[in-house]
């Protein structure tokens, strides 16, 4: 490459400096075109996308019933072993023995939010929640039990 002359270099340097400064100045005088989000001050209005994967949750209805039958498909589908399901045998009204969940343990600290458990679930018992502020001071708080105490499986869910 041919070296430009001394004064030409100075001219080009000043020119490219001014070009850059012009763009910076444009955004300085047009604050509406910037895209900064004032997190965490905007927590009240901040809405995550509906498909955003923040954590695994198990929805319960108003009568404290969930849809999990304890088939353990999610446990097999999980690549990290962050799901552990402890099942028990329950006797229903007709006197038949039936498998049900005792505790649905979810290790948030091992979860990579890959969504494979949600896809594997045959009864749509679990889904991804939008909460993303998971920081805690104690690691043991990240081990969660998703089925609420006293809850049982919704009738008709097989």
């Amino acid at each position: 490459m041919k070296e430009p002359g001394y004064f030409k270099t100075i001219y080009l340097s000043v020119k490219s400096l001014l070009t850059g400064m012009r763009m910076t100045g444009y955004y300085f005088t047009h604050p509406k075109e910037t895209h900064t989000e004032q997190y965490p001050d905007n927590r009240a209005t901040l809405k995550m996308m509906d498909r955003f994967r923040g954590e695994v949750i198990m929805p319960h209805d108003e009568t404290n019933e969930h849809r999990c039958t304890g088939c353990q498909s999610c446990e097999i589908a999980c690549p990290n072993g962050s799901i552990k399901i402890i099942t028990k045998q329950e006797v229903n009204a007709e006197g038949k023995k039936k498998k049900a969940i005792d505790t649905w343990v979810y290790h948030l600290d091992m979860c990579t939010m890959c969504n494979l458990c949600i896809v594997a679930c045959p009864t749509d018992a679990i889904k991804m929640g939008q909460k993303f502020e998971h920081s805690v001071f104690d690691k043991s708080l990240l081990k969660k039990i998703l089925n609420e105490p006293g809850s049982k499986v919704k009738s008709g869910v097989e």
Binding site: G20, T34, H35, M49, R51, F52, R53, T112, C114, N115
Partner: peptide
């Protein structure tokens, strides 16, 4: 330094598309 901010501004739009459809911004799976 300033290219970094402009690049991230535009990249943010694409990350939002990823988040909306795939559910995650970087590790989409």
């Amino acid at each position: 330094v300033s290219p970094f901010f402009y690049a991230f501004r535009d990249r943010e739009a694409i990350n939002d598309i990823m988040e909306e459809t795939c559910g995650a911004r970087l590790t989409q799976n």
